[in-house]
């Protein structure tokens, strides 16, 4: 058992380590030299061509971590330890918590309940690889990867007929359009509108163009070649919010749940295909 974990970690490390040379100098986002950028694109294209997704390594990491942290007792809405297809019906209302929760928020709740972590410990656990650009394998990322991949092939089916979920969806939609902060951004600044636009070279997906929200969220956690680790949805929110110049995002918050309910609700009917891969 231990040997297996070590092997997995070694594989993940080797995969990430191979890219370290590209990333070590790029401590800060957006400061890649043209040569580094080229190398990154080549690496990314190679992964695409060969059909490799290093993100899958985290599935095994998560499988072990779920046992280690007693998460086989965790109920994602289909019963304790029932994980097949559970992600597809999230976010949902949980009577035991009295709240609507998305996958990551629910896992955080379970870590407090079944692994005896405090809220602060959970936050630390969640963010241990945030801001890292190489050789960082987090058990939390593994857990989220495992739980999401257990729903691969299933269609997202958020129950918007439940009034509590519907309300969170409505709040999330309005959060999406809330202009706030010192640069006046909202989510819709980049991810809404019928017309297709780019931020520098990046084509942006839009909630207003059919299917695009689904394509965007159904592949999370998404393996990012430039960081050598899978980015969970809450890390994605945190990075968007950093770019928006808002104060730092808190994972597992109502804000996260509202956004997830709006995004996954909009994505209803899209097949889950984790992990995705990106530069």
């Amino acid at each position: 058992m231990k040997k297996k974990t070590l092997l997995v970690l070694f594989t993940a490390g080797a995969v990430a380590g191979g890219l370290l040379s590209t990333k070590a100098l790029a401590q800060v986002e957006g400061e890649l030299t043209p040569e580094q950028e080229m190398k990154l694109v080549q690496e990314y294209n190679r992964f695409l061509a060969e059909g490799i997704n290093p993100g899958e390594v985290w599935y095994e990491v998560g499988k072990e971590a779920i046992k280690k942290y007693n998460l086989d007792k965790c109920d994602l809405g289909l019963g304790p330890g029932v994980f097949k297809g559970a992600m597809a019906q999230l976010p949902r209302y949980f009577a035991d918590a009295g709240k609507v929760m998305d996958l990551e928020t629910r896992v955080g709740w379970c870590l407090q309940k079944h692994a005896g972590m405090t809220q602060d410990q959970v936050l630390k656990f969640v963010r241990q690889c945030w801001g890292k650009t190489g050789n960082c394998v987090s058990e939390y990322d593994g857990i989220i990867m495992y739980l999401t991949m257990e729903s691969n092939g299933q269609k997202i089916n958020v129950n918007l007929k439940d009034p509590k979920v519907k309300r969170m969806y409505d709040v999330g939609r309005q959060v999406y359009y809330a202009r706030i902060g010192p640069w006046d951004f909202n989510c819709a600044t980049c991810h809404a509108g019928k017309q297709e636009v780019r931020i520098r070279a990046t084509r942006l997906w839009s909630a207003d163009r059919p299917g695009e929200a689904g394509n965007a969220v159904s592949i999370f956690p998404k393996y990012l070649v430039r960081w050598g680790l899978p980015m969970t949805m809450h890390y994605r929110y945190a990075e968007c919010i950093r770019q928006m110049r808002w104060p730092e995002f808190m994972p597992h918050s109502d804000l996260a749940v509202a956004l997830s309910t709006y995004l996954y609700g909009t994505a209803n009917g899209t097949e889950i295909k984790a992990p995705g891969i990106g530069r």
């Binding site: 709040v171 309005q174 959060v175 809330a178 706030i180 919010i241 808002w246 104060p247 730092e248 995002f249 808190m250 918050s253 109502d254 804000l255 996260a256 509202a258």
Partner: peptide, 10 residues
């Protein structure tokens, strides 16, 4: 909306 939004920010 603002209450939910600020609940998730540092």
């Amino acid at each position: 909306v603002i209450k939910v939004l600020t609940s998730g920010l540092s």
